[in-house]
Design a protein around this nucleic acid. Structure first.
Lengths: 136, 136
DNA sequence: CCATATGTTTACGTTGACGTCAATGTAAAC
DNA sequence: GTTTACATTGACGTCAACGTAAACATATGG
């Protein structure tokens, strides 16, 4: 994890399996701010980290706007205690959101596991009947 | 949880805070199939349960198409052992998907909690400095 | 009897998140 | 030097997931 190297748009898009178009789109929406060497974009390790956060946010079903707000929480801006307290509140709100989401996931996993157990039972049932029929 | 009663479109939309338009849309996409008394829709407890699953899927960031496939897993269709085995595979795949998603969530929660701790530290730091300045 | 509330279908509008060109630049490879 | 590969910026297209508006039926209370 070399912190000083840079990445081309192709390298990043390949590594994370997103299109270059998507990366430019994220930049357009203010989610990443890669440097420019002339015209071409140079992504830093920090940009890479932000991209990881973006993609994780997407996997969790957040919109780009929401992800933008989340990313803002990661960029330190110490504008007085009041601001910091407000940011702290946002952190906690975000944690609550995520926890609720985890409850949803846990419920879904349990449902699916119950379904698995039931289905396995049904399959063994049918197989038992097939055996009985074979022996008749 | 009376299993025999029915719900109007308004009742459901109010209870789950979705518009009637959305409910009709979900029906259009084949996600729910309420009965009709004449023209008007009558939602059963089963439809209500499916709606819950739909909304949970949405909260988890699944598309309506994906949710449709998930819902299919909930509707029993015993078409031979081969089909059941295939369905079992889909169940397990879905479980894996959900578990990966939970790892994402856990990571995000940890990040946010780290951020909280750090921010709390910064705030107390600044407060300490303010105190020092007051005593000077 | 009429207003109000709730229901319906059909159709077009909108927003988000990109995809898909087109026209152009640049840099390495042959 | 020219082809090849990858870069750029617009501009328009597209798909999902609804919103919104029009035009109408049904029923219920005052």
């Amino acid at each position: 994890m070399d912190h000083s190297r840079t990445y081309s748009i192709r390298q990043l898009s390949k590594e994370f399996d997103v299109t270059a178009r998507a990366l430019r789109f994220y930049e357009d929406k203010g989610l990443i701010h890669p440097e420019r060497k002339g015209q071409t974009r140079l992504y830093s390790a920090r940009d890479r980290a932000r991209l990881q956060l973006i993609l994780r946010g997407k996997r969790l079903g957040f919109s780009l706007i929401e992800i933008h707000e989340i990313l803002d929480l990661y960029t330190p801006k110490d504008h007085g205690v009041a601001q910091m307290r407000a940011t702290l509140g946002k952190y906690r709100g975000q944690i609550e959101t995520l926890k609720r989401q985890r409850e949803d996931i846990d419920a879904a996993i349990h449902d699916m596991q119950d379904g698995c157990v039931w289905l396995e039972g049904e399959i063994t049932k049918v197989e038992a009947e097939n055996l009985k029929a074979d022996n008749a």
